[in-house]
């Protein structure tokens, strides 16, 4: 019996020794895992953005970009996120929507900006979408819903137009699953608090749009695709209460109203 236990122990030691030895090798670099993933993501991001862009008008107003950029910069700097990696697009649309595409494309519709009462509410939405990007939810959702093989066939030009349209629809109009949404909300609260922006404003935005949602509106995409807005507002407040935030203004007094005017 002693011999058996000794041999089992040796077998386990052998397994963990091999695991330990293999752990010493930098496989990620050797197999160029990150490079391959990044390159696929970049191709997908550019392709989906170009296709979406072809049917929508992008706002190229420098002043409007500068104002939203200062919001982004505040969140990025406070959370050690590289601002340069995020590609910001403001799109003319009556649909209240904002979404992330692969390769850190952040798309914000003008209707969403107009529906925000102040810049802090917009920061909440931006932080939520940034959380999806930073937590790699965009690619995970695509792989889960579409499949890795189809995604690769899209990048190599072997997928049909119907499939590509299906993916764009998925990215712009469908929500992530409840677990990922909650994770993005909680992370967004952390981002906001690190940036000394009060997350309660984000909760207010959700609660307000949640009320509109019950009245019914075809233009409330961002809310319609993110279920239980009131519940989300509640847990955002519950999470943010844990840390006291001494909110500091993000923009100069009239910058946000100026932004709204620029987008009209």
């Amino acid at each position: 019996m002693k011999k058996i236990f000794l041999q089992i122990s040796l077998l386990i030691i052998l397994f963990f020794s091999l695991l330990g030895a293999l752990n010493q090798v930098d496989w990620m670099r050797l197999f160029r895992v990150e490079k391959i993933t990044k390159s696929t993501e970049k191709k997908l991001g550019d392709m989906f953005w170009n296709l979406y862009h072809s049917s929508k008008d992008e706002i190229n107003n420098d002043s409007a970009h500068r104002i939203i950029d200062s919001l982004l910069m505040r969140i990025c700097t406070s959370n050690k996120i590289e601002r340069n990696t995020i590609k910001l697009h403001i799109v003319q649309s009556t649909e209240i929507n904002a979404f992330a595409l692969p390769d850190q494309h952040l798309v914000i519709n003008t209707a969403l900006i107009e529906s925000c009462q102040n810049e802090m509410e917009l920061c909440g939405v931006v932080a939520h979408e940034m959380a999806h990007m930073q937590l790699d939810h965009v690619m995970k959702k695509l792989i889960k819903e579409i499949g890795l093989s189809v995604l690769i066939s899209i990048t190599t030009g072997n997928a049909g137009a119907e499939k590509i349209n299906e993916v764009i629809k998925l990215l712009t109009s469908s929500a992530y699953d409840r677990k990922l949404e909650k994770q993005a909300d909680i992370t967004a609260v952390d981002y906001l608090e690190n940036s000394t922006i009060n997350p309660a404003e984000f909760a207010n935005f959700l609660a307000r749009l949640g009320q509109k949602e019950t009245l019914g509106s075809q233009y409330l995409s961002w809310i319609n695709t993110h279920p239980d807005s009131k519940e989300r507002a509640k847990y955002i407040l519950a999470h943010s209460n844990k840390i006291a935030v001494k909110a500091k203004p993000v923009l100069a007094a009239d910058s946000f109203s100026q932004l709204k005017k620029l987008l009209q």
Binding site: F15, W27, M28, K140, K144
Partner: peptide, 21 residues
């Protein structure tokens, strides 16, 4: 595939060890 977990060095090392066994 389904959660935010990412491919890591540990994962590749584990899969190679499992493959060898």
């Amino acid at each position: 595939i389904f959660t935010p977990e990412k491919i890591s060095n540990h994962y590749i090392a584990y899969m190679l060890t499992a493959f060898v066994f």
